[in-house]
Structures are given as structure tokens and as C-alpha cells.
């Protein structure tokens, strides 16, 4: 018998939901750099605008730009805009980002559905060239690597540009979760390179640094990587030292990822466990969900999505 109940309906994407909620919480901590309402959000809203809804409601950001590459269905995107404050720009992020004003602190989420390539790196460099201190950059890319395909590594090198592949990386490093680690390294290197050049002409106190705060690995279907971090200037060293993110359990400042692993549970099981949390559902007696699943749930229950069919 197939064990398909363990799998999920891809359209529901529980890990993506969890990621969005964790990110929202992590981004709230940017308030140490200034009022969140003074931030601007730039993302790829698609027709769902899930990130825009969350960030407007929970961060109070009301200057929002959604970049949409599908310019053939403009009306549909306009129609689906959940709030008036979202400005839709049609085109590729590569073309749109350079036209934006970068005067204000910005949260930019480059939520690519595809693999990392030179265009993505150019978007990342664009942000690092222009965004003011206190701005946050989140990058999501597909981290699947199909080793079986002939010339896969060469294709990967060409896609991201040989000049961006760290020395010593071979196809062996791309196994399983390895690919996501390599991709993170490439992204972080690009950020460091761009900031280093930008710092060249800046006074010491004004020089910019990058602090990563999330490094998510998850797989609703394909393996995905999301890394997010903030750029800050030397004069804000004290703020950074105070550790704005210290108490959040999924924060990662380095190459070690936080794996979002959502167990498949029924609403009844969720309710039952919730009533015993945050101490630990493992203490509950006569509970038929395996221990491993219970533990997974205990880690993420605050962010676990509740899906239900609704008649609207």
C-alpha cells in the first residue's frame, strides 16, 4: 500500500508557508534599524501576493513594489492586488531593479522559482550596490542538482558564471543538500565582493557589512534554498552586537542551514498537540503520532499552516 498520506498536496506548500511566517518574524527585528513602516518592500507577488499580505499586515509596510515578468496578463495581476499600496512593475527583475529609487531602507525578496544564474547574481549585486544600511535581502532559489544529466556541472558553471564558482568545488559537492550549500556560498561571495568594492570610497564608520540571519533548506517538492541577511554599517556595530535575532530558534548566521521539515498531520492531531505545547507533546499519553513527527511539530508549531476548505 502506498504511503501517500505522508506526502502533501504540492499546491498547499506547507514549508513555504512556514518559511514566510518565520521570515516575517525575523524581519520584524529590523526595527532596531528604524521604524518598520519606513521600509519599502520589493518582491515578486505573482497573482497570490502572499508575501505582500503578510508584510503589509504584520510589518506595517505600505510602500510596496511587485515585479512581474508576465506582462501579457497585466489586468489579472492588477485585479489580484490585495491592497491599493502595491505598485506593480512589469518586466524582468534585471530590468526593473535598476530603475527603482534606492533612497530608503528596503526589504527585497528575490523569490526566484528557477535555479541560480548570472541574472540572479546581477540582481543581488544591484541590491548590494545601492541599498542603504539596514536594508535586507532575501534570496530564494531552486537547489535541485541533477547529477545524472550529462555535463550537468559544466552547465551549472556556465549558468552562474565560472568566475563565481568558488575554487575547489566539484560535482561531488553538489550531492543532495550540498548544492544548496554551494549556492549559498556563491551568493554570499557575490554580496561580499560587491560590498567590498562599494566600501572602497567610504569612510570607516560608513563601511557596509553583511549579516546573514536566515539560511533555510526546505522541500515541498524540489529542494529550495532561502538565505536572508541585512546590510549594516560600522557605526551600527553596537546594534548588531546586541543580537537582535538571538532568541529566534531558526536563525542561522553561517553555512549551517535550518531545515524546515513540516510533518503531515491532521487537524485533530494538531489541536491535541497544540494544547500541550510549548512544553512538549511527547509527554502526552496514548498519542498515536510517531515521536519523530511530534518532535518536528514541536519545533515549528507556531508557524505551522492550518489548511481548511472554505466556502466563500
Amino acid at each position: 500500500m502506498s504511503a501517500s498520506y505522508k506526502e502533501v498536496n504540492y499546491s498547499l506548500r506547507p514549508a513555504k508557508h512556514i518559511e514566510r511566517k518565520m521570515l516575517t518574524e525575523a524581519l520584524q527585528r529590523l526595527s532596531v534599524f528604524g521604524k518598520l513602516s519606513s521600509y519599502r518592500y520589493v518582491g515578486f507577488g505573482s497573482i497570490y501576493f502572499s508575501d505582500f499580505k503578510l508584510f503589509h499586515r504584520l510589518l506595517g509596510i505600505s510602500r510596496m513594489t511587485s515585479i512581474e515578468k508576465d506582462s501579457f496578463n497585466k489586468e489579472r495581476f492588477e485585479f489580484n492586488k490585495p491592497f491599493r499600496c502595491i505598485d506593480l512593475k512589469f518586466g524582468l527583475s534585471n530590468d526593473i531593479l535598476p530603475t527603482l529609487s534606492w533612497k530608503d531602507k528596503t526589504i527585497l525578496w528575490l523569490d526566484y522559482d528557477g535555479a541560480l544564474n548570472k541574472d540572479c547574481l546581477s540582481d543581488i549585486a544591484e541590491f548590494c550596490t545601492k541599498a542603504p544600511s539596514g536594508s535586507a535581502l532575501i534570496v530564494t532559489v531552486n537547489a535541485e542538482f541533477d547529477k545524472a544529466e550529462l555535463g550537468a556541472f559544466q552547465q551549472f558553471e556556465e549558468a552562474v558564471g565560472k568566475e563565481n564558482v568558488p575554487i575547489g568545488i566539484t560535482i561531488k559537492d553538489m550531492k543532495g543538500a550540498g548544492a544548496a550549500k554551494v549556492l549559498r556560498e556563491i551568493i554570499v561571495n557575490k554580496i561580499a565582493e560587491t560590498l567590498s568594492a562599494r566600501n572602497g570610497v567610504r569612510q570607516k564608520q560608513q563601511r557596509l557589512n553583511y549579516l546573514q540571519f536566515v539560511n533555510f533548506h526546505y522541500a515541498d517538492n524540489a529542494r529550495m534554498l532561502t538565505i536572508g541577511g541585512v546590510i549594516w554599517k560600522n557605526s551600527q556595530a553596537e546594534t548588531i552586537k546586541s543580537g537582535p535575532w538571538n532568541d529566534l530558534p531558526y536563525i542561522k548566521h553561517d553555512a549551517d542551514p535550518y531545515v524546515i521539515d513540516a510533518p503531515c498531520l491532521t487537524t485533530r492531531e494538531i489541536r491535541y498537540m497544540d494544547s500541550h505545547l510549548p512544553i512538549g507533546p511527547e509527554k502526552a499519553m496514548k498519542f498515536p503520532v510517531p515521536k519523530e513527527q511530534r518532535e518536528k511539530y514541536a519545533k515549528i508549531y507556531r508557524y505551522y499552516p492550518a489548511f481548511t476548505e472554505a466556502e466563500l
Binding site: K162, E163, I167, N189, A192, E193, S196, N199
Partner: peptide
């Protein structure tokens, strides 16, 4: 100064390697 900045970049090492 410029040299010190470059030497610590991973991308510089990749260029040097190439």
C-alpha cells in the same frame, strides 16, 4: 588597502585560480 580587501574575497581567489 585595496589589496587587503581583494585578497580576502572568494571571488578574487577564483579569478586568481583561473
Amino acid at each position: 588597502e585595496g589589496v587587503a580587501n581583494e585578497l580576502q574575497l572568494a571571488t578574487f581567489r577564483t579569478r586568481l585560480k583561473a
